[in-house]
Design a protein around this nucleic acid. Sequence first.
DNA 1: CGCCGGATTGAAGGTACTCAATCCGTGTGG
DNA 2: CCACACGGATTGAGTACCTTCAATCCGGCG
Lengths: 241, 241
Amino acid sequence: MQRTVLLSQLKIACSNCNLRELCLPVDLSVGEMQQMEKLSHAKHSYARGSYLYRSGDKLQSLYAIHSGSFKTQFLHEDGREQVTGFQMVGEIIGLDAISTDQHSCDAVALENSEVCELPFNKLEELSRELPELQRHLHKIMSGEIVRSQGIMLLLGSMRAEQRLAAFLLNLSQRFAARGHSPTRFQLRMSRQEIGSYLGLQLETISRAFSHFQDDGLINVNVRSIEILSLQGLQACLNSSR
Amino acid sequence: MQRTVLLSQLKIACSNCNLRELCLPVDLSVGEMQQMEKLSHAKHSYARGSYLYRSGDKLQSLYAIHSGSFKTQFLHEDGREQVTGFQMVGEIIGLDAISTDQHSCDAVALENSEVCELPFNKLEELSRELPELQRHLHKIMSGEIVRSQGIMLLLGSMRAEQRLAAFLLNLSQRFAARGHSPTRFQLRMSRQEIGSYLGLQLETISRAFSHFQDDGLINVNVRSIEILSLQGLQACLNSSR
DNA sequence: CGCCGGATTGAAGGTACTCAATCCGTGTGG
DNA sequence: CCACACGGATTGAGTACCTTCAATCCGGCG
């Protein structure tokens, strides 16, 4: 019930864009709805492989992913590079830039995708008028901090197969939250990109996939994944070390 | 010049607490200063080893470190635990809790320390009235996201000695920014804690310290550090892989 | 003085990396 | 239509780095 209200508010905030992450957890008055309309924006398309923004670009907007998916990658001075996240429909991208007014990483489309642009100045202005929006924006940013902590734990203390299990379970949850199957889905990223994200080499990812398949935990055919035992993956993740 | 203005504003915001991270980059009117006074707060002391907050605690306040230092540690369900950060004077701690209204990690004093409590509700309220404060709060949160990305890069793609070099150089910068020597300082944390933060075993940390000393890059005596060659550490950090 | 926790050092072993060969699906050109 | 090239994925063998386990050292404190 509340859900449909949220979606209708959403449409106001982001015309015809079912923007989960910015939906407000409360009803808005007519006046407040009119204010939300101020957050006018444009919807843009990005072809697979194209950049939404690059490291060093000035902060203009945050972006809500309307369709498709992206990766963010962080570039070290010495050329080292690492995938720092994979973002899918309904997630917000670009928060890294607020700190310095410049983006600190690249965002690249993993497939043909559409994003809703949310001019950051307007977002700030509006969130001064709508405490619920303010709180929500804060939650999104804080959530990103917590997510990073989880990745740090993964990178710092898990072995290869645990990392991949955690990755697959996380994808599973996120697909489920969007109404897709939690056990059958297509990977949008290469072994190389998964490895970069998980701090492993692509060969190690490939071997771990094969091992999971041998153990009957998953069926994997290149980028098609079928999870046969969520519990099995969870057990792998929780294994002593 | 501006600096002193900032510090005086600071005192208003945080009585007698030279709170760098919340100082505002602009002058405030008399009325605005009065508003800042609304952010009344308490200053509390924490003995070495005591908890500022624990995972699961309800979000009440953010905390600005007035003296001393803390570590934050993240606890996995299965008992795995990892240090996710070391915070020193002037830094803000507790941002992780905004996401779920509960702290997602523990904060433990590394030495006898004092913090200024910043009730989060008041902070939000006030930041609706003071756009400069709002922007600054956003920058602090975003900065934490960027910091996490840097740690992810470190954990995902650096070898042991590079990680320790990065750690020492980061400490050096932070001490320098606070007016201390960038080359001589005391570590506040154990080898175990450094290892946990850097995703390594304590023995590996110890060996890397010894190796740096053999190479003439540092003098280390348990927790006393003297950096002999910042360039040398930087070179180690930048070495091919 | 002796205990204790943290730090150092040594030796052996394991996990993931590196290098390399092969496979496979897709797209391209003859 | 088939051959071929290409990029990504898989698999194998050897190696490097870090971990693990263990012994020892060192400084502080009862």
